[in-house]
Amino acid sequence: MKLLSRGAALALAGFGLLQAPAQAQDIANGEMQFGRQCVACHVVRDPEGQVLAGRTARTGPNLHGLEGRVIGSVEGFRYGDALGELRARDVTWNEERFLGYVQDPTAWLRRTLDDRRARGKMAYRVRDPQDAADIYAYLRSLSGARAAAN
């Protein structure tokens, strides 16, 4: 069997034709990483106002119900132009977009919008891909657990 060149594999992966093996997500690690990497700027507050994670941080938007939400759509939060453009296009958060964004916000925005001048306000990067995936799983568990309780 012939091996694909790295460039061909990346191109196929970009079109969703070649999938990397999924790694198990660790919600407990996601909770710990959220506390280490995200809590200074973000909170997870449910619609009833209960803080599920974080404190009262307001630098970044509330991350409750992130999955499936239109990017840049938290009421009362002032987003940058690039995320505003994604909101105008009704692009929603999913795991792939979240992982790309949190690992390198500016690069992800530039690729997604095909605009080399696009910038995000979030300067922080989650450097470890597994930590990013675990944080996403943790956020999903908070939103899902709350929805299941209602």
Rank of each mutant, 00 (worst) to 15 (best):
R36A: 09
P105K: 12
A28D: 13
N94G: 13
I135W: 04
R78S: 07
P21H: 12
A40N: 06
A13Q: 13
R119C: 02
T92P: 00
R125W: 11
M32H: 10
R116Q: 14
R45W: 00
R87H: 07
A9G: 10
D134S: 14
A22N: 05
E67D: 15
Y124L: 06
R116W: 11
L86I: 03
G49R: 11
R116P: 14
A88M: 02
F98V: 02
M1V: 12
Y136W: 13
L10D: 11
L86F: 03
G80K: 02
A82D: 05
E48I: 02
A11L: 13
P47N: 08
L10G: 07
N29Q: 15
E67Q: 15
F34Y: 11
T112W: 00
A88F: 01
V91P: 02
W108F: 08
A13M: 08
L3V: 15
I27M: 06
W93N: 15
D81S: 12
N150V: 09
D81G: 09
K121H: 07
C38A: 14
D90G: 11
E95S: 13
L66G: 05
Q130E: 04
R111T: 07
S5M: 06
Q25E: 15
A13L: 04
Q25F: 06
G14C: 04
L18Y: 06
Y138I: 08
V102S: 00
D90N: 15
M122W: 04
A107K: 09
A148S: 14
A22H: 06
V51F: 04
R125F: 11
D81C: 03
G60Y: 01
E85H: 12
R58C: 04
D26C: 06
A53M: 12
G30R: 05
L52K: 07
A53Q: 14
L109S: 02
Q37L: 12
C38K: 04
N62M: 09
H42G: 03
L139K: 09
R6C: 09
A20Y: 10
